[in-house]
Amino acid sequence: MTAPARFITFEGIDGSGKSTQARRLADALREAGHEVVLTREPGGSPGAEEIRRLVLEGDPDRWSAETEILLFTAARRDHLERTILPALEAGKIVICDRFADSTRMYQGLSRGDLRALVDQLHDLMIGREPDLTLLIDLDPDTGHARAKGRQGHEERFEDFGPELQRRMRAGFLALAEEFADRFRIVDGARSEQDVARDVLTVVEPELA
């Protein structure tokens, strides 16, 4: 099946189910005959995965928000060069679990008034927005409980507590208004199957 290259991202608070929905969408599109690259941020390339360990593990106060912005931008640049752009140039669909909108929220808004700095670095070093962003919206307390229940090693941001998630949700909804041309909001407070169905309904017209 031939379809135009598309860059699709999933955003949402921790525990919203966006990673699961990104995988489900990738599987559905592959079954339909599309060439799909499923990736994530921070990460998605060898260098970016090394930075991922630095920013997602350890004490919540390990890095300042300013340092995190630099680390995430460095990881994103490597990811863009080595994974995202080559796949798009080859005509593939790229599905990414988080991208620059997460940095706008976590470091640019929720941990300080640094949104302008995030956008300046993004314009200078990245210069690319997704074609479509799916925001999986969920109650912050529910999301935080889900995220903490995973009991993994990458819990540095979950350890900031539910108040951060509340600010994040409000911020993501504001971003969806700011970038209304590419954002679509999907209700995440339903079964995994129902959310996946709605995600596919949003995405399929973009591939026509």
Rank of each mutant, 00 (worst) to 15 (best):
T103I: 11
L173A: 08
E49V: 02
L200H: 04
D27S: 13
L114Q: 10
A28F: 04
E66Q: 05
A196E: 02
R24T: 04
T83E: 07
Q193L: 11
E154V: 05
R6S: 14
D131H: 13
I126S: 14
T39D: 05
A100M: 14
L132D: 14
G149E: 12
L70A: 15
T201V: 12
S64L: 05
E41L: 05
R6C: 13
R197N: 06
R77N: 00
R52C: 03
E177Y: 08
E154D: 14
D141P: 00
D27F: 01
G112K: 09
D194Q: 09
R156L: 01
L70D: 03
E68R: 09
R166L: 12
D101H: 10
L121C: 13
E35M: 05
D97G: 10
F7L: 05
E129V: 08
G58L: 00
P140Q: 03
P205C: 01
F72T: 07
S110T: 14
D159K: 15
L80N: 11
R190Y: 00
F72C: 06
L71Q: 07
A174T: 15
I93W: 11
M168F: 00
L135H: 12
L25I: 08
T39A: 08
R156E: 12
D139W: 10
G108F: 04
R98W: 12
H34D: 07
E57T: 15
F99P: 03
V37K: 01
G112L: 04
V55A: 08
R6W: 07
Q165F: 11
P130H: 03
A189C: 03
D159R: 15
I136H: 02
D181W: 01
S110L: 06
R24C: 04
G33Q: 01
L29E: 03
R40F: 02
G47S: 11
S45I: 12
A26I: 01
L56Q: 08
A5T: 07
A196D: 11
V118T: 13
A75V: 04
R6T: 08
I136W: 09
A48I: 09
L124F: 15
H79P: 09
P46G: 10
I84K: 05
S19N: 00
A65V: 12
A75G: 09
L135E: 09
Q165K: 08
Q165P: 02
R146F: 03
